[in-house]
């Protein structure tokens, strides 16, 4: 039982990270129908930049944290401005996919150029002994990760339901053409979605690095995991993809614990393929719902 709980906790930890990545996928997907395959690189970016501010420049934790988030947002902005906007009008899906792949390679290259190939780590948000809960060990950083996930959920709820801008974005997600006719500046929405997405993905990186370390080439696998979570929960719904992230994290952790650790990545990919091929709308919504959400 303790062993199970231990696997469950570590599953929740990884799952929270997957949930954040899945969320950053979802935000861009909702406004543009683009799947940004550079998402994993943003996670790596967050961790590496945080290390730079915290360990290299010796800035205070809070300052480094905010600076790293802003860098994530800025790179998101740069990506949208420089690579997405020039081609968005052509609306050729093949081209848009290729562009996000190209940008992911570019970003990976830049990170390697700046940071080299070594793994990086830094201390967690708060020092202290791990917490023991029903015999299973829980690191303090994990508590922080949960707090941030909850904060983001609250933020998203308020943003999309209570603010004018968020509602406009929601309208844009539901029906881009009508939103445009109503005078909503859809290009602005696209921009904001890339910034938000960049911030969330780098937040995932900032939070996970003290637990697992980060290096320049971890991006692609994180992209796949985040995407699998999004597909599992059903692209289009923020709550769905969150749930998908946690579910994937737990399944992986149990597989690694009870069966074989090498299988956990294969499992994720098998889940991805199975979902894509047989239920692309996700576990929690019907195809009709997914279509209505994304007409």
């Amino acid at each position: 039982m303790e062993l199970f709980l231990q696997y469950f906790f570590s599953g929740l930890t990884v799952g929270a990270i997957y949930a954040l990545i899945a969320l950053s996928f979802n935000i861009i997907y909702n406004t543009t129908s683009i799947l940004n395959l550079a998402q994993g690189e943003f996670v790596v970016l967050g961790g590496l930049v945080m290390w730079f501010f915290l360990e290299k420049l010796k800035l205070p934790y809070g300052t480094s944290f905010l600076l790293s988030l802003s860098i994530g947002g800025l790179v998101g902005l740069a990506m949208e401005r420089l690579t997405i906007r020039p081609v968005l009008k052509t609306a050729d899906p093949l081209l848009l996919i290729l562009i996000t792949i190209a940008f992911s390679i570019l970003l990976r290259g830049v990170l390697m150029f700046l940071f080299g190939k070594e793994p990086y780590g830094y201390p967690p948000l708060s020092e202290g002994e791990p917490i023991v809960l029903w015999g299973a060990v829980l690191q303090r950083q994990v508590i922080w990760i949960f707090i941030f996930v909850i904060l983001i959920m609250i933020f998203l709820y308020v943003f999309f339901n209570q603010t004018m801008f968020g509602r406009a974005m929601k309208a844009c997600a539901i029906d881009r053409v009508s939103a445009k006719l109503m005078g909503i500046k859809t290009t602005q929405m696209v921009m904001v979605s890339f910034i938000l997405s960049g911030i969330f993905a780098s937040l995932a990186g900032i939070l996970i690095t003290p637990i697992t370390f980060v290096e320049y080439d971890k991006g692609p696998l994180l992209t796949i995991k985040g995407f699998t979570s999004a597909i599992l929960g059903g692209l289009g719904s923020n709550w769905g993809v969150m749930a998908g992230g946690f579910l994937l994290g737990i399944l992986e952790s149990l597989t690694a614990g009870y069966i074989h650790s090498g299988l956990k990545d294969v499992l994720a990919l098998l889940i991805l393929l199975t979902m894509l091929l047989f239920k692309p709308a996700g576990l929690f919504q019907t195809a009709e719902q997914a279509r209505l959400r994304k007409l």
């Binding site: 690579t83 290729l98 562009i99 792949i101 190209a102 940008f103 992911s104 390679i105 570019l106 970003l107 990976r108 290259g109 830049v110 390697m112 150029f113």
Partner: peptide
């Protein structure tokens, strides 16, 4: 990696 990424983009 950087050069490939740049050229491709």
């Amino acid at each position: 990696v950087l050069i490939y990424g740049f050229i491709l983009t």
